[in-house]
């Protein structure tokens, strides 16, 4: 599946037509605990990571927040 992930084109190694955010995190081995997630500019809250999904050509943003300031 080809998507835009964090402003860059990304080919995901999957045969599925739809992926949820949690499936994407697992696939990419993202282990950040604090995240801001958007699909096509729409904010996805943590409680919806298992239900919110995206497909080919969607624009997905997984922005990790790390401590320091």
């Amino acid at each position: 599946m080809k998507i835009i992930l964090n402003n860059r084109e990304e080919i995901l190694n999957t045969t599925k037509g739809n992926l949820t955010i949690n499936e994407l995190l697992k696939l990419k081995k993202f282990s950040f605990t604090r995240l801001v997630v958007k699909i096509n500019s729409k904010l996805i809250k943590r409680e919806n990571f298992d239900s919110a999904s995206f497909q080919e050509n969607d624009n997905v943003e997984i922005i990790h927040m790390i401590s320091g300031g």
């Binding site: 604090r34 801001v36 927040m65 401590s67 320091g68 300031g69």
Partner: peptide, 15 residues
Amino acid sequence: FDKAEMKEMIVETVL
């Protein structure tokens, strides 16, 4: 902010 959870909170709130 310093803490990641606070950064997440304000970004989600503003968005």
